[in-house]
Nucleic acid binder design. Structure first.
Lengths: 266, 266
DNA sequence: ACATAATCGAACATTAAAGAACATTTGTGC
DNA sequence: GCACAAATGTTCTTTAATGTTCGATTATGT
């Protein structure tokens, strides 16, 4: 696989390419990499030096070997990388609803992922999830028991769905379900994927209490599949950018509406 | 897709176009984008700067790559990073046993992970696994259906175990189980973790045929839990560094013993 | 239509990346 | 242990990308 067509690339990509090669072959050599990437050996050495500084590898004479750590990674694209600040604030408010020792289920989605990240210092949780990203965010915390539901791995999306996921869910009972949605209107909750919708439904069924986390721009919109009515939702946490018109039906539909801004609930 | 017809667009649409391009290609370059959108490189840089501020990407010299935030990682330590060459040869031999359209289950382990990586160009597989690393290696291949078994996520180890995993497994029937082990002797197969052992047992139960992949240095050793007798194993694939003493009992115990060296089976 | 802010381009200063030459260390065979 | 070769480190230089500032242009809101 010598690519004579030396493709243009930046230092950063060359370095991650080195790491990739390292993880597949276990060892790399300076001269080999130099011809491969069409740069001088000196450049490769500097790359290896930098990577060693990040504990990504261990240098040897003539090359480098794998350092103890290796990662399995699921790359995915977060669609709405926009309103991070709101999502964080919403996530903090949701995390505040979780007490030590609770059993909870966390849905897939970017906002729910933020909730999971905010859950780091809650002790003794049992967490059920269909999201690989959530499992990834939580599995390093030793005081937490993380159960990943089984199911089909969707390509380009770090989550699980299918009948196995649904069946697995119904074996459990949890105190709280933390849910996301792609769109909301006065009739209910919507998402784009049928499989995900069915999993979310099952989560609602097995939870004593449900909380929906969403930013305000999802209101008064619809999407492909409706997966729940409002009476299934006990709490909604939303940022305070809600239009007045939305606010009226929201207060009618949901028992507890929590508006948060900049980090603290109002 | 060079659009000579540079249609006028706002900064925001250009930025989301950049993000889209990034998500489809994984990397973007300043000069490339500049000609593509018919603006100066400076403008692109400002775009990238703004997008980086939103955590949407990470800038590099010359361009930008995906933000690490949109990657779910499961860090783990690969113990025997030594005999890579043997493992890959073993993995190739194992992958050769897998025909298009088969249903298989893959155990957790570094050698089985290599098998998964070698399975990239086999079409129409249905793969069942308890290993997050295997799922990670396979989930990008669109022609493959990857089912992750549910279960407890072990901290510091990218795999699943527990009663949920075992129960899930028994819902399936597969053509082939690809198994690993931590140690082998004439009495059977051993591993260090009870949970993993039970999962491996279940995999044997649900498979029509079983193949064990192992490097020769695991022979004539034991570990904490014995999880199978040799009559449960139909094939073993091992490198040809096997001592003569081991070879004798190995040939007795297992129906089909395949020795591989340097990349080709003998 | 007007004011205002956002956006963009151009010139110049700054900084990072990569190569080259030479000094130094490391590994290996005798 | 010594010598030789290969690999590595150091320093300097060149090139290219980046940042800065300012002025011009284009949206945007009242």
């Amino acid at each position: 696989m010598k690519n004579g067509t030396h493709k243009k690339q930046t230092a950063t990509t060359r370095r991650s390419a080195i790491l990739e090669r390292l993880s597949s072959e276990g060892e790399v050599f300076v001269l080999e990499l130099a011809t491969e990437f069409d740069v001088t050996p000196m450049t490769i050495r500097r790359d290896l030096e930098a990577l060693e500084g990040q504990n990504a590898l261990t240098r040897t004479h003539g090359g480098a070997i794998f350092s103890k750590q290796s990662v399995a990674e699921f790359a995915f694209l977060e669609r709405n990388r926009t309103s991070i600040a709101e999502k964080r604030a919403i996530a903090r408010a949701a995390a505040a609803m979780v007490a030590p020792g609770m059993r909870i289920v966390i849905d897939t989605g970017t906002t729910t992922l933020e909730v999971a990240r905010a859950l780091g210092n809650v002790d003794g949780l049992q967490v059920l999830t269909s999201s690989l990203a959530v499992a990834s965010a939580l599995h390093t915390f030793p005081q937490m028991e993380v159960v990943l539901l089984g199911g089909n791995v969707r390509s380009n999306s770090p989550d699980l769905s299918g009948s196995l996921t649904e069946d697995n869910l119904r074996k459990f009972r949890v105190d709280l379900a933390i849910l996301g949605a792609d769109a909301l209107d006065e009739r209910g909750l919507y998402t784009t994927d049928l499989g995900i919708a069915r999993v979310s439904e099952a989560m609602i069924d097995v939870a004593e209490e449900t909380v929906l986390v969403s930013d305000s721009r999802k209101l008064s919109r619809t999407s492909f599949v409706k997966f729940a009515d409002w009476h299934a939702i006990d709490h909604i946490i939303v940022d305070n950018g809600v239009a007045a018109a939305d606010r009226s039906w929201l207060d009618d539909c949901v028992k507890h509406v929590h508006y948060v801004s900049g980090g603290k609930a109002c």
